[in-house]
Design a protein around this nucleic acid. Sequence first.
DNA 1: GATGAATGAGTGTTCATTCAT
DNA 2: AATGAATGAACACTCATTCAT
Lengths: 209, 209, 209, 209
Amino acid sequence: MTTSAPSSLKPRKKPQQARASATLDAIFEATIQLLVKDGYPLLTTTRVAERAGVSVGTMYQCFPHKQSLIYAVNERYLEILAEKIEYTCRAALGLPAAAMAEALIDTYWAAKTERPDVTRALYRSVVEMDNEALIAEFAARTEAATTAMFASASNRSFSDVESVNRALVTVIFGTVRNSFERSHSEQEVNDLRRQLIAMCRAYLESCVG
Amino acid sequence: MTTSAPSSLKPRKKPQQARASATLDAIFEATIQLLVKDGYPLLTTTRVAERAGVSVGTMYQCFPHKQSLIYAVNERYLEILAEKIEYTCRAALGLPAAAMAEALIDTYWAAKTERPDVTRALYRSVVEMDNEALIAEFAARTEAATTAMFASASNRSFSDVESVNRALVTVIFGTVRNSFERSHSEQEVNDLRRQLIAMCRAYLESCVG
Amino acid sequence: MTTSAPSSLKPRKKPQQARASATLDAIFEATIQLLVKDGYPLLTTTRVAERAGVSVGTMYQCFPHKQSLIYAVNERYLEILAEKIEYTCRAALGLPAAAMAEALIDTYWAAKTERPDVTRALYRSVVEMDNEALIAEFAARTEAATTAMFASASNRSFSDVESVNRALVTVIFGTVRNSFERSHSEQEVNDLRRQLIAMCRAYLESCVG
Amino acid sequence: MTTSAPSSLKPRKKPQQARASATLDAIFEATIQLLVKDGYPLLTTTRVAERAGVSVGTMYQCFPHKQSLIYAVNERYLEILAEKIEYTCRAALGLPAAAMAEALIDTYWAAKTERPDVTRALYRSVVEMDNEALIAEFAARTEAATTAMFASASNRSFSDVESVNRALVTVIFGTVRNSFERSHSEQEVNDLRRQLIAMCRAYLESCVG
DNA sequence: GATGAATGAGTGTTCATTCAT
DNA sequence: AATGAATGAACACTCATTCAT
C-alpha cells in the first residue's frame, strides 16, 4: 500500500546544505504564491524562478521538470498535513471514540482553513501530475495513525475497527473538501462542522462492538 | 445563491437546430473521450475538432474559447446529475428520512460510478475553468430538491431542516468524491457505502425535532 | 541498396498545391542562404522562417523538426545533382571510355562549382542529420547511371565493369570534394582537373578487357 | 601557405607539465569517446569534463571555448596523421614512383581505418569549427613531404613535380574519404584500394618527364 | 456558413560560460 | 590552482485563435 513516488518526479537535489534548503524553500513559496495569485495555467517555470530569486538553471538543478516541482510542492504540503494528523492521533490515544473523531475533525479542518487560498490552489494544481502515488502514500500514513487511535478507544471496542476507521476518515476528509468547494458563509461552515461531529458521534454510538 | 455562468464562458450557440445540436453532441463526446484517453494536458482544440468530425472554425462558432468548451462539458455533466438527484428526491417525498438519505446516496454513487473514468477526467479538467459559478448553481438546484424532500419526511420534523440538509448533502457528496480519489477495492467501496448509510441513519435518529 | 529515408525526416506536406510549393521553395532558399551566410550553428528555425517570409508555425507544418528541414534541403540538392549526372551519362552512351570519364568529371565539377559556398555549406550541414540513407540512395542512382554508361563504351569491354566503375566514381567524387576543402588557386584547380582526367584516361587504357 | 591557427582557437595551456599533459590527454580521449558514442550534438562541455575526470573549470583553463576543444582534438589527430605520412615519405625516398604512391595509399588508408568510428566522428565534428587553417596547415606539411618524396623518384623525373604531386595527394586523400562515406563491403574496399593503386601507377607511367 | 492553413506569442528546457569559494 | 553551483540567453517547438477563401 505504501507506494513511493515515481523517481522521475522526485526533486534532484536533497536539501543537504543550508543554502540549497533555502533555495528549495524559496522555490516552494514562489510556486505557491503564483498558484494562489494567478492559478496553474499562468504558472511558468520562468516566473517561478524569478519570484524565487534564482535563475531558471538553478531551478532545473533542483527539479528536472515542471512536473516534479508541482509534485514536490504537493508532497511537502501533504507531509505537513500528515504530521499534524499523526500528532493529533497520538495525543488522543485512550480517549473516548467520539472525542477522537472530534479531534480529527478539528485538526483537519484547521489545517485546511489556515491558508484557504493555498488549499484551493493546490487542489487545482494537480492536473499535470500523476498524483495517485502521492494520495496513496498520504492515505496509508493517515490510516495507520487513525486506526491505531480508534483501536485504543476507552469506551468501546469495534467489531471491525478498519471498516469504521475507513468510513470516518473518508467521510471527514471528503466533507471538508466538499465544504471547501461550496461557497458557504462562515456561519454555515461552523454549523456544518458541528453537524459533522454530531454525525460521527451518533455513528460511533450506533456501532457498539 | 443562484449565480449564473459568466457570459464569456457560455457557448455562443444554443442548440436551437437539430444540426447544431448534433454538432454540439459530437464535440462534447469528443472532448470527453480525449479527456479520458489522454488527460487534460493533451487536449487540444484541433484534436477535439478532428475527433468530433468538424473543423476548428466550426468549433469556434460554438465555443469562443477552449475554456468555454470545458465549461460547457462540465455544465452538461452537472445538469444530468442534477436531474437525477431531483428525480430521486421527487420519488422519495413522504418516505421516512433514513430511506431518503439512502436513496440519495444510491443515486449519487451510481451516477458517479457509471462511467468512473469520465468522472475522474472531469474532476481533473477543472483547472482552467472558473468553476465557482457552476458548482454554486448545481448546489442551489440540488439543495432545493433535497430540502423539499427532507421537509416532507413522514416520521419526524426537523428543528432546522436547512442545517440538517446541508450537512447530509455535503457529507454524502464529499464522501463519494473522496472515495473516488483513493484506490479502494470494490469490497471496501461497498462497505464504505453501507457505513455511510448507517452514519446518516444514526445522525437522523439523533436529531429528533 | 536503395534505402529510403526514415519517414520521420520526410517533410510533412507534399508540394501538391502551387502555394505550398512556393512556400517550400522559400524555406529551402532561406535555409541555404542562412547556412551560407552564418553557418549551421547559427541556423535557427525562427530565423529560417523569418527569412522565408512565413511563420514558424507554417514551417513546422511543412517540416516536423529542424532535422527534417536539413534533410530535405540536402535531399533536394542531391536530387538535382543526380539528375545532372544521369543526363550526362545518357548523353555519353557509346562514346569512348575516356570521353565518358571526362564528361563525368566536367559535369560533377561544374555542378559543385556553380555555387561553391552552397556546396561548402551543405557539406557542413550534415551533423545533426542521419545522412547514411541519403548518401546511399544518391550512390545507388549514380552508380546505376555510370555503370550503364561505361558498359556501353565503344572502344573496349571491361572484364569487371562494376569494379572499374566504382573506382572511377569514388575517385572522381572524392577528388572534387577534397579539392573543395583545400584552398587551391583557380589555376591549381584547373590543373588538378586536367591531371584527374589524364589519370582516368591512363587508368582506362591500362585495363583493357 | 603555412597558415597558423587563429589564436582564439588555440588551447590556453601548453602541455608543459606532466600533470597538465595528462589532463589534456584525458580531455582529448573523453571528447573522442563521447563523439564516437553519441555524436557531436550530444557533446556538452560538462559531459566531457565529467568523463575526463576533471572539473569544468579546469577544462576551461585548458580550452577557453568549446570550439577550441574541438579544434585541438582535430589538430592532434591531424598532427599524428601528418607524422605518419612524413615517416612514410622519408622511408620511400629513392624508390620508384609507383612504389611511393602505393606506400602513401597504404599508410593513409591504414591510418584512417585503424579506428574508423573515430575517423567518422571527427569528420562530423567540424561544424562549429573554422577548419580552414587546420586543413591548410596539414596540406602544407603533407605536400612538403610528398613533394620531396616524388622528386627523389629513382626511375623518372617529372616535368612538373608540384602538379603531379598535388594531383596524387588530392586524389588519394579524396578517394579514401569518399570511400568512407559510402557503405562499401570489405571486399569492395580492398578492390577499390587495388584499383586506386593501379590508377596512380598508370598515371605515373603516362607522365614521363 | 464552414473550412483549415496560417499565425506568433509563449513555453519548457538546455548548456556554454563564469566566478565565488 | 581547482572546483562546480549558478547563470540566463537562446532554442526548438506547440497550440489557441483568426480570417481569407
